[in-house]
């Protein structure tokens, strides 16, 4: 496990084909691996490196820069409490404090049952809905302590509504039918688009006629 399944490998190849250079697919493939395993495993990074044609160390080098990639397993539900300025002004830190006490863990840690990881995060673009938090990147606005507790209770009881397990982001994927692709090739194989040249030339000629 941890290398891509057959199905995901096909998906990975489809994603790579959307970029002029395969390496550009590194981050999307890290997300795909995290969706498969819940975190970004060593073997997955090796598999990604084989698919995009770089070394496993380069994949790790890229992945380790980004906060969302978890190189070790985290809880099924990652709870991100925003404490940046707009949320801080309206109780974001108090909410984090409550979350720590309620879950019995410090931020950055995972509950013993492996259900919850709590994080104190930077601005999540919900500033007018402070204090805000996310569970697996799904938003919860103007969260009171009581609402936080009932959210946790629901998740414990398996009432997870729209929230997928950690690792899954958008559940709708972009898909381009091969016949619909305009022109995705390496930059070296690209030249001035014909429509651009023709249309500008025609307009310039027309302008010349008008002015002459």
């Amino acid at each position: 496990m941890s290398r891509f399944t057959r199905e995901n490998e096909l998906l990975a190849r489809e994603i790579i084909a959307r970029y002029p250079r395969p390496k550009s697919a590194t981050i999307p493939l890290c997300h795909l691996a995290q969706e498969q395993d819940g975190f970004l495993a060593e073997d997955a990074m090796r598999h990604i490196s084989e698919l995009v044609g770089i070394t496993a160390a380069e994949v790790r080098g890229t992945a380790s820069f980004y906060e969302m990639f978890k190189l070790k397993p985290v809880g099924k539900y990652l709870i991100n409490v925003c404490t940046n300025i707009s949320c801080q002004l309206l109780g974001g830190e108090e909410l984090l404090e409550h979350a720590e006490q309620s879950l019995g863990i410090r931020s950055g840690s995972t509950t013993e049952d492996g259900l919850f990881t709590l994080e104190d995060v930077e601005c999540i673009a919900a500033c007018t809905e402070a204090p805000a938090c996310q569970v697996n990147y799904r938003y919860f606005n103007t969260v009171s302590n009581e609402q936080f507790d009932s959210l946790v209770e629901d998740l414990r009881a398996g009432r997870n509504g729209e929230i997928p397990d950690h690792g899954t982001l958008g559940r709708v994927r972009q898909h381009i039918e091969p016949g619909q692709v305009a022109n995705i090739t390496a930059p070296e194989q690209q030249s001035e688009p014909g429509w651009f040249r023709d249309r500008n030339t025609a307009a310039a000629a027309e302008q010349g006629e008008v002015s002459s």
């Binding site: 970029y19 890290c30 820069f65 990639f69 958008g170 381009i176 305009a182 995705i184 688009p193």
Partner: peptide, 22 residues
């Protein structure tokens, strides 16, 4: 994509996700 609205204009738009870095 290809031949947008039946014209010669063609371009691809690809959705890409970040991973958490301001």
């Amino acid at each position: 994509g290809k031949n947008i609205l039946g014209t010669d204009f063609s371009v691809d738009i690809v959705l890409h996700w970040g991973a958490g870095a301001y």
